[in-house]
Amino acid sequence: MSSANAPDLTRDDGRTRREAVVRLVFFVCAVLSVLTTIGIVLTLLSDSVAFFAEVSPVQFLTGTSWSPANDPVNFGVLPLVTGTLVITIGAAAVALPIGLLTAIYLSEYASDRARSVLKPALEVLAGVPTVIYGYFALVYVTPALATIFPTIDTFNALSASLIVGIMIIPMVSSISEDAMSAVPDSLRNASYGLGATKFTVSTSVVVPASVSGIASSFILALSRAIGETMAVTIAAGNTPRLVDLTDPAGVFLNSIQTMTAAMVQLGASDVTGQSIAYKSLFAVGLTLFVITFAMNLVSEWIASRYREEYR
C-alpha cells in the first residue's frame, strides 16, 4: 500500500512472470485468513445443522435443562448461557471500573517512567496462560474466599469470575488509554484554563471525550470473558444450573457451568463425530462464536468511529 510503482523496464528476463507468481503466493497467504473464517463457520454449521435436525432450535434455545449424556437427555442451552452470564457479570464488575481507572491513571497522571514500567506489567496480566489462572482460582483464591463465605462451594462462580476479571483488566485499560491519549490537549487546556482540577478534567472532559473508545474496550473485554475457557472450567465447576434469581448469593457461591466448560467436558470424551452429544458440542460452539463475533464487530465499529473523530 505504501510503495511506489516499480519502474517500467523494457528488458524482462521473465521478471514479470516471477513477480506475478510471488504476488500470487503472498496473496494466497493473506486469503488463508479468510479461509480460516470460512472453515470455522462451515465446521460449526455442518455439525450444528445435523444437531438441529434432531433437536429443534427452539428447544435448544429455550430449554432450561442441560444434560447431554444423562438419561433423560436434555439439550437446553439456557443454563450454560446464564452460567456464562454470571461469570461475565462478575468479571465485568472487577475489570471495567479497575480497567477504566487504570487507563485514567496511565493517560492523565503517570509520568513517562511510571508508564514505561506499568504498561508492560499490565500486559503480563494478559500473558499468563489461562490454565494457570484456573489453578490460582482453585488452589489459592477459593480457600481465601472460604474464610469470608463459609458456605462457598469448592467450585464456584465467584473465584472464577474474580480471576477472569483480573485477566481482562489490560484489555480495558490499554484500549481505553489509547482512546484517552487521542483526546486533543486543547480540550484539556481549555478546561484547565477555566480553573478545573485534574480530577475534573479527567472525569468531565477526557472520559466523555473518549467514551466511544472506552465502550469499545468494554465490549471487547466482555467478549473475551464470555469466550474464556480454562479458568472457568477448572474453578467454576461443571454443574449446569439455571441461575436462581431468588438466591443472588447462591448464584456466585455455587458451582455452575459455562458454555465453554460444557464444550470442554463434551470434547474430552467424544471425538467420534457420530453421537448427538458430539453434535451438540458444535451447536454450543456456534452459539458462542455468534455472540463473541457480533460483540467484536460492534466493538470494532465503535472504535473506528472514535478514530475518525480526532484524526
Binding site: S33, T36, T37, I40, L44, L220, S223, R224, I226, G227, E228, T229, T260, M263, V264, G285, L288, F289, T292, F293, N296
Partner: peptide
C-alpha cells in the same frame, strides 16, 4: 479472527 475464543 484474533478475537475468536480459542475453544472455537
Amino acid at each position: 479472527l484474533a478475537g475468536v475464543p480459542s475453544v472455537v
